[in-house]
Amino acid sequence: TGEEYIAVGDFTAQQVGDLTFKKGEILLAIEKKPDGWWIAKDAKGNEGLVPRTYLEPYS
């Protein structure tokens, strides 16, 4: 299990392996990579890379 984050903006996948999401979606951070791209999972179970700058902790 990971930590929940809320998307603060829309993001469209730029390449294969990225995860597209919309502002307000809750994402589960699976792995926090030091380069600023995290592996996350959305509510539908889709998994991919997301930019850290689009996420804020969800409580």
Rank of each mutant, 00 (worst) to 15 (best):
T1F: 14
T1A: 13
T1Q: 13
G2E: 11
G2V: 13
G2N: 12
G2W: 15
E3D: 12
E3G: 10
E3P: 08
E4F: 15
E4I: 15
E4L: 15
E4H: 14
Y5D: 00
Y5N: 01
Y5F: 11
Y5C: 05
Y5W: 11
Y5R: 02
Y5S: 00
I6F: 06
I6M: 08
I6H: 03
I6N: 02
A7P: 01
A7R: 00
A7Q: 00
V8K: 11
V8N: 10
V8L: 13
V8E: 03
V8Y: 04
G9I: 14
G9T: 14
G9W: 15
G9M: 15
G9S: 15
D10F: 03
D10H: 06
D10T: 06
D10R: 02
F11C: 06
F11R: 07
F11S: 03
T12S: 10
T12H: 10
T12E: 11
T12V: 12
A13C: 07
A13N: 04
A13R: 08
A13G: 12
A13F: 03
A13S: 10
Q14D: 08
Q14H: 11
Q15N: 14
Q15C: 15
Q15R: 15
Q15I: 09
Q15D: 10
Q15L: 09
V16A: 13
V16N: 10
V16T: 12
V16E: 14
G17I: 04
G17Q: 06
G17T: 07
G17P: 03
D18H: 15
D18I: 11
L19W: 00
L19P: 01
L19H: 02
L19K: 01
T20M: 05
T20L: 03
T20Q: 07
T20P: 10
T20Y: 03
T20N: 08
F21Q: 01
F21P: 01
F21N: 00
K22R: 12
K22S: 09
K22M: 09
K22H: 09
K22F: 10
K23D: 04
K23S: 07
K23N: 05
K23W: 06
K23Q: 08
G24A: 03
G24T: 02
G24H: 05
G24W: 05
G24S: 04
G24R: 02
G24Y: 05
E25L: 03
E25Y: 04
E25Q: 11
E25T: 08
I26T: 05
I26E: 01
I26Q: 04
I26R: 07
L27R: 00
L27F: 07
L28G: 03
L28H: 09
L28R: 10
L28M: 11
L28Y: 12
L28T: 12
A29F: 07
A29N: 02
A29T: 07
I30N: 02
I30R: 04
I30E: 02
I30Q: 05
I30P: 01
E31H: 12
E31Y: 10
K32V: 07
K32A: 07
K33L: 13
K33D: 06
K33I: 06
P34M: 11
D35Y: 05
G36I: 04
G36S: 04
G36F: 05
G36N: 06
W37V: 06
W37A: 05
W37N: 07
W37D: 04
W37Q: 06
W38M: 08
W38F: 07
W38C: 04
I39L: 14
I39C: 09
A40I: 07
A40F: 07
K41S: 07
K41G: 04
K41H: 06
K41A: 08
K41L: 10
D42M: 01
A43E: 09
A43L: 11
A43V: 10
A43M: 14
K44G: 09
K44F: 14
K44Y: 14
K44M: 13
K44A: 13
K44N: 14
G45F: 03
G45Y: 02
G45M: 04
G45Q: 04
G45W: 02
G45S: 04
G45N: 06
N46M: 08
N46H: 09
N46F: 08
E47Q: 14
E47N: 07
G48E: 01
G48M: 02
L49R: 15
L49A: 10
L49E: 05
L49Q: 09
V50P: 02
V50I: 05
V50Y: 00
P51E: 07
P51D: 12
P51H: 14
P51I: 04
R52M: 15
R52L: 10
R52Q: 14
T53R: 13
T53Q: 14
T53G: 14
Y54C: 15
Y54G: 05
Y54T: 06
L55S: 00
L55V: 05
L55A: 00
L55N: 01
E56L: 09
E56I: 12
E56M: 11
E56R: 09
E56V: 11
E56Y: 08
P57Y: 08
P57T: 06
P57H: 08
P57F: 08
P57G: 06
Y58M: 11
Y58F: 12
Y58K: 08
S59G: 12
S59Q: 14
S59H: 13
S59F: 14
